[in-house]
């Protein structure tokens, strides 16, 4: 069931990941690899360990054992500050719900990661607007998240996830709260934007129609992963 050794040119690879939450084994020898510009769907039933895999890959939670290499560096050897810096500048995140700060306008939300990295307000909002234009939500710049629809809010969240020019975008059920049409548009814009910047996308989903936007899929079951492309 485990993925074989990472192929050459991988940006992010994981091998033999194990992670337990108390008595529950969430990951049991899972592996993963992704190249720049690639969209990989992580599929599997609820509770299979796919979100835990994403959290480990993104350096949000450390695995109990196993190896995660990002751009040639073992993540376990990085300290907290280095991992935080990585998440702020090299990684982008899109989740299903509640990602936007309700008190800020949409453009301020999109600009936020740049502001946290020390970019001036003017420069940050200019870049943010460019991304909002690409995600077709620039007309919402001055609105607050409470004033936009779910689909629009999710596009704003995608713009925010890409504003720092991340090399890896982690998307956990990014269309889970949207209807089919809005979900598809978000996936089209997300994958187009990521491909245009050569960002790798780790796409966690249980929906086949969403996974169909990926280049290949990895199936996680009982904490073990199976790379379908390399299994064939």
């Amino acid at each position: 069931m485990n993925a074989p050794a990472a192929p050459a040119g991988s940006l992010l690879t994981a091998e033999e990941l194990r992670k337990a939450y108390g008595p529950t084994l969430a990951l049991d020898g899972a592996g993963f690899s992704i190249h720049p510009g690639e969209v990989v769907a992580v599929m599997g039933p609820s509770g299979s360990g796919k979100s835990t895999l994403l959290h480990c890959l993104a350096g949000i939670v450390p695995p109990d054992s196993g190896s995660i290499m990002y751009a040639g560096r073992e993540m376990a050897t990085m300290n907290d500050a280095e991992r935080s810096a990585l998440r702020r500048s090299e990684f982008g995140f899109v989740f299903q719900f509640g990602q936007l700060v309700p008190e800020l306008t949409c453009v301020e939300n999109v600009a936020l990661p740049l502001r946290l990295n020390g970019t001036s307000r003017k420069e940050a909002e200019k870049t943010a607007l460019d991304w909002m234009r690409r995600l077709e939500v620039d007309d919402l710049a001055k609105k607050r998240p409470g004033e936009v629809s779910g689909g629009q809010g999710q596009r704003v969240a995608v713009a925010r996830s890409l504003v720092t020019g991340p090399r890896v975008l982690f998307a956990d059920e990014p269309t889970g709260a949207l209807d089919s049409l809005n979900g598809e548009r978000v996936m089209e814009l997300l994958t187009d934007a990521a491909r245009s910047t050569n960002a790798a996308v780790v796409l966690v989903t249980h929906e086949a129609r969403v996974a169909a936007y990926s280049d290949r899929e990895i199936v996680v079951r009982d904490g073990k992963s199976r790379d379908m492309e390399r299994a064939v």
């Binding site: 769907a41 599929m43 996974a211 169909a212 899929e217 079951r221 492309e229 299994a231 064939v232």
Partner: peptide, 20 residues
């Protein structure tokens, strides 16, 4: 039997990617 289902899922997704 899990392998049968896994390879079928993969084949279905291949078709879905082409259609998408």
């Amino acid at each position: 039997a899990g392998d049968v289902l896994d390879s079928q899922r993969s084949e279905h997704l291949r078709s879905m990617r082409i259609l998408t």
